[in-house]
Design a protein around this nucleic acid. Structure first.
Lengths: 167, 167
DNA sequence: TTGAAACTGTTTCATTTGAAACAATATTGA
DNA sequence: TCAATATTGTTTCAAATGAAACAGTTTCAA
């Protein structure tokens, strides 16, 4: 999709709530930032999820399921992405000597170097893109999201079946 | 992925900024709410993107590209999803008499009924899930996101190549 | 010790997504 | 008018995602 700064043609629906508006905006901001990240990584031989795995891996190795927990996705999602990172030479799989079920995701020297080069620029670009918020507003946003996130982790009372089963 | 309320094993990286923390939390909240939505729609014969299209369609018909603009995705993404909604009988394609390029996405009576039944429950669940924020905090969050979103729509000055080309 | 249960990662399958190329149609400016 | 340009939606391909089933391994309680 091409990014346009033109005013859009459609207007807000009348039947809405502050919660829905906040959620809609959250999705829009998420979508925009994702788009920017994709664009940045375009010339770097990396996709967004590939870069994310690189960020969570380490030279000494991190279990795949620790990475999937931090990325809030299923193990099965990562198998293929790791395969592609291996093909590109940025990570490798090593068996965990202490637990034969575990496979450790290790940054190669090339991967570590890529990350050293990319991460600071990545953070700086994010900082610049959020400049429409003041320092104080960024902290306010962070605290609101932190509080919302904690609330989401706890089951909703007064509403059985209000959340996925914890299997 | 199964949703767990257990404390996670990993800890915050030391090298971080308020902006990065806010963005990470935004991704986490987005991921949680997406997970809840998926779970809710599970028994409703719908996926999240299918439900989203249903919400943007109407009895009188909406051009596909208007829907893709609101969903911030490419037209090509919607072709397949609309096909599946047609197969389920919730939507149909009709040619626009005024512009033969356009195909209007129209809710069928079944689709409209589904929506009448689902939408209020959907909004109510969202409201409950955000109860960890006070009414005032929800509005605060909404305004911060609104402001951030506006800033993201405008190109970043002092940083050419700081945003995808507007082709 | 051993058998049931839990955990880890892979495989498989269907769906979604991103991007490019394309055909059909519309718009515009010379 | 008419040729260049833009828009709309589809097709195609690669990548990512969600969910279920699975094999190998570990844990734990009887």
């Amino acid at each position: 999709m091409s990014l346009s700064t033109e005013p859009t043609g459609w207007q807000q629906s009348s039947e809405t709530t502050p919660e829905l508006e906040a959620y809609t905006l959250l999705r829009q901001v998420h979508s925009m930032l994702e788009m920017y990240n994709r664009y940045d990584l375009r010339g770097e031989d990396l996709t967004v999820p590939q870069f994310m795995i690189l960020n969570y891996a380490s030279r000494s190795g991190v279990p795949l399921s620790e990475i999937s927990a931090r990325m809030m996705c299923d193990n099965s999602n990562l198998t293929g992405i790791v395969d592609r990172l291996i093909a590109k030479g940025y990570v490798e799989r090593r068996p965990d000597p202490n637990d034969r079920r575990v496979s450790l995701i290790c940054l190669t020297e090339a991967g570590a170097e890529k990350l050293r080069n990319l991460r600071p620029r990545h953070h700086e670009r994010l900082r610049k893109r959020m400049r429409s918020l003041s320092e104080h507003e960024v902290q306010q946003l962070r605290e609101l999201l932190r509080s919302l996130y904690s609330g989401l982790l706890a089951p909703v009372e007064d509403d059985r079946n209000g959340h996925p089963a914890d299997d």
